[in-house]
Structure formats: C-alpha cells, structure tokens
C-alpha cells in the first residue's frame, strides 16, 4: 500500500512539472516546419518493421491513422501534445498513415501542412493486410485508429481512440 502511495505522489509531481514546458517547445518546432517542405517516406511492411522494433532507451508511440478516418483526425492533437510534452523524456511519436498512395500529394501533405503536424509521418503502402495487421498485433482486427506503444522491454497495442489524458496515462506506464 505504501508503495502505491509513493507511486501516486511521484505521478502527480510528474504531471505537475510537465505542463510548464509546453509553450516554449511548441514555438520551437513550429519554426522548423515553416522552413521545410513536407516529404513523406513510403514503406512496405518490411521497410516499416524496423521502426516498430527500435531497441534503444526511448519510448515509441506509433499511431496508425489516415486523413479519411474521422476519429483518427480527431485524436491527432493528443499525439501531437504527447510529442511536445514528452520531448525531454525520451518519448517519440510516429504517425503511420494508411492514406492511399494516390492521395499523398492531394490530401495527406496538405493536411500535414495545414495542421502543422510536428510528429514524424510515414506512409505504409502494403496491400498484404492479412499479413501485416496480425504481425503488428495478433489481436488487431484492422480497425482504425490504432496505436502501438513500445520500449525495449514493454509493448502494448490499443485498438481504440485516445483522448490526451488516457494517452498520457498509458505513456507514463512506459516511463516508470
């Protein structure tokens, strides 16, 4: 019981400090986007796979989404906020888009520019869904949105939508 209380105190302290860093972070990254043109790297599953298995000291939050998926678009700000709030805590966000290759220039890139998306975005272009959906997680039905969070010793898959608080709680379980 005592341990739990200490953990809770620690969590609260944690939540407490974090918010203060947000504004400065955000303005820094914003500048970067204005200066650069958005380019999207396209992978088949074999190409993407190493990005889902990076064995270092970071926590990776990988969100599977598409511009045509309304709940995905709705939850993107939560992932963006994780990226900025946890920037100093070794947490990285990767947005894996399942937009159709034909729509990358017409829809995906304009979307990223308009919404000033800061997280890294890549395209997964691989029609062998039967193979890679199960490989990413055996229980994933293929429904979007979906999220994978992993570190070198923990891995969890979420076939659900997130709000910021729920996502933050999950990310924190990887940091302790």
């Amino acid at each position: 019981m005592k341990n739990i209380v200490y953990f809770l105190i620690a969590s609260f302290l944690f939540f407490g400090c974090k918010t203060e860093q947000k504004p400065s972070n955000k303005s820094e990254v914003k500048k970067a986007v204005i200066a650069s043109n958005v380019k999207i790297k396209s992978y088949n599953y074999d190409g993407l796979k190493p990005l889902l298995h990076i064995n270092d000291d970071k926590v990776y939050v990988v969100n599977f989404w598409a511009t045509w998926c309304a709940p995905c678009v709705k939850e993107l700000p939560a992932f963006e906020k994780i990226k900025s709030d946890f920037a100093t805590k070794n947490v990285e966000v990767l947005l894996v888009s399942l937009d159709f290759p034909k729509q990358v220039d017409k829809r995906l890139i304009p979307f990223i520019e308009k919404n000033e998306i800061q997280s890294k975005v890549v395209l997964l272009d691989d029609t062998n869904e039967q193979r890679w959906i199960s490989e990413i997680d055996k229980d994933w039905s293929g429904s979007l949105p979906a999220t994978l969070i992993y570190s070198k010793n923990k891995r969890k898959f979420y076939e659900q939508s997130f709000d910021y608080k729920t996502l933050e709680n999950e990310v924190n379980t990887f940091l302790n």
Partner: peptide, 10 residues
C-alpha cells in the same frame, strides 16, 4: 478468419 484495414464503428 482474415484481416483487413477498415473504419472503426462510430
């Protein structure tokens, strides 16, 4: 049993 990408039920 097969799998494919789809839209979540709203």
């Amino acid at each position: 049993n097969t799998k494919a990408i789809g839209c979540s039920i709203k």
